[in-house]
Computed example of a mutant assay.
Amino acid sequence: MQTEAIAALAASGAAVLGVPAALIVGVRQARAAHHAAEVTAHATHDQARKAARREAAVVFVLAAESALDECMRMYESKEPIEIYSADIEKRVLGDTSRAFTVMRIEGPEELAQKAKKVMLALSELTLRGARRQRTAHAWHHLKQAAESSDVISAALGELTEVSGPDDPRVRAAWQAVAGTGVLAPGMEHTLRTHLRVGSHPLLIKSTGMLDAREEVRETLAAFIDAVRRHLDEKTP
């Protein structure tokens, strides 16, 4: 009888002699329940983590789009850069930078790297926009002054007729403008650097603003695609 009982226990998977079968079953059930609880806990943790990453990504995208809009509003403005600098700093250096920091913390590294490319593109756009805006402001100021100054009007006329930036008349024209005191030294330097002389009418050289805008859009689209792929994955 005892041999038959041992054989029955062995056949049922009980390897411990003298341990009640009900206890063996209870231990197995407890282990199964513990494993199920761990799986549920991991799944809940993964869902919470992805929810946090989704929220961080949404905040980052909204901040980046707002910064892009702010830069483009500055693009054609003829107002002093100081009027826009506070908003630009808030959007690019403030809101977007904070959202980027959260992305770096939440991870994963792939998304953080994609977000970094957006930040670099936004920084480049900001620099080009500021350069374009400073030139536009100085140019607008000088054209207004030409309406009441024959000296400036004549100097601008010379700048449209020169053969190129190395033409001796370019230097003479800018010296005439400087002699009027209409432009601050910084504004004059900006115009001498970024005004396309020898064209009629005089035009501002391209700062690559539109290309920089496309770079922001492309890197932002790549970031959004990466976020979608990550959220669709079964593992974090």
Rank of each mutant, 00 (worst) to 15 (best):
M103F: 06
M103T: 13
E106K: 13
E109L: 09
E109V: 15
E109D: 14
E109K: 15
E110F: 11
A112W: 08
Q113S: 11
Q113E: 14
K114E: 11
K114L: 09
K114W: 01
K114V: 01
K114A: 13
K116H: 15
V118Y: 03
V118N: 05
V118K: 01
M119L: 10
M119R: 14
L120D: 09
L120Y: 02
A121C: 11
T126R: 15
R128E: 00
R128V: 06
G129K: 00
A130V: 15
A130N: 03
R131C: 04
R131K: 10
R131W: 01
R131Q: 12
R132E: 11
R132Q: 10
Q133D: 00
R134E: 05
T135A: 15
T135L: 11
T135I: 12
T135S: 12
A136Q: 13
H137G: 05
H137T: 11
W139T: 02
W139D: 04
H140K: 14
H140S: 15
H141R: 09
L142R: 09
L142Q: 03
K143W: 05
Q144D: 06
Q144W: 06
A146T: 12
A146W: 04
A146M: 08
E147P: 00
E147V: 10
S148N: 12
D150M: 03
D150C: 00
D150G: 04
D150E: 10
V151K: 12
V151S: 04
I152N: 00
I152V: 10
S153H: 14
S153C: 12
S153M: 08
A155N: 05
E158M: 04
E158R: 07
E158I: 07
E158K: 07
L159M: 02
L159G: 00
E161N: 07
V162G: 01
S163V: 08
G164I: 13
P165I: 13
D166W: 02
D167Q: 09
D167T: 13
R169M: 04
V170T: 09
R171P: 00
A172V: 10
A173Y: 04
A173C: 05
W174K: 02
Q175F: 06
Q175K: 14
